[in-house]
Design a protein around this nucleic acid. Structure first.
Lengths: 99, 99
DNA sequence: TCCTAATGCAACCCGCGAGTTGCAGTAGCG
DNA sequence: CGCTACTGCAACTCGCGGGTTGCATTAGGA
């Protein structure tokens, strides 16, 4: 699940939060965050690979935008998984009580 | 978000999947997975710290159980976040179109 | 068209996390 | 009550990921 690995880093959350207040380029983000532009560029590549962010060229810069749909899709998968586990646990508990 | 860091590792997913088929101890998991017992113990500690798993002593062994509720809670937070981002993007787009 | 500012690429450092081995301790089962 | 098996702790290796610096390149704006 590479999307969780992507969400596991604090710096990437900072980037996502910054992008949540409006699209921005790597350079723009670097001026607001305490890391270099290249580090941010790497993070943006990772975020793009898992679909959490998408690039769009504006003039001579590359702006990035958060893709909320990807977060929702991930949330849905997590929820189903948790639900399935709960059902299974309930089933096991039921079987145990029946013995 | 330490819970995402916890979910970012493949081995931990293997452990969660194995636990999904019934509670098990570190030793029991080690016999099924291609890693040592100590490695699994470390992973179980991490999973326990973020509330994805809970220990319960059974005889002389410590069995672990998946906590589905934690997954659902995480899913809910993710979903709200994605939703908020979508709303914000829609608002920004609306403002831009109005100019 | 020129010059600036933005991106892209490459090499490098470093710390942390995943994994291993070894050993000590301890709690139950028989 | 003794032995076995399971857990806990410690030390160590190693590869990867996050971060940096430096340079080349290129695309626009004035």
């Amino acid at each position: 699940m590479p999307v969780f690995a992507a969400l596991g880093d604090d710096t990437r959350w900072s980037i996502l939060a910054a992008l949540g207040q409006g699209d921005a380029s790597a350079s723009g983000l670097a001026s607001r965050l305490p890391v270099s532009r290249q580090a941010i560029a790497k993070h943006l590549t990772i975020l793009e690979e898992v679909g959490l962010v998408e690039p769009l060229r504006v003039g001579r810069e590359v702006r990035y935008r958060v893709v909320g749909a990807q977060l929702e899709a991930t949330a849905r998968r997590l929820d189903e998984l948790g639900f399935a586990w709960d059902r299974r646990l309930a089933a096991i508990k039921g079987i145990a009580e029946r013995l």
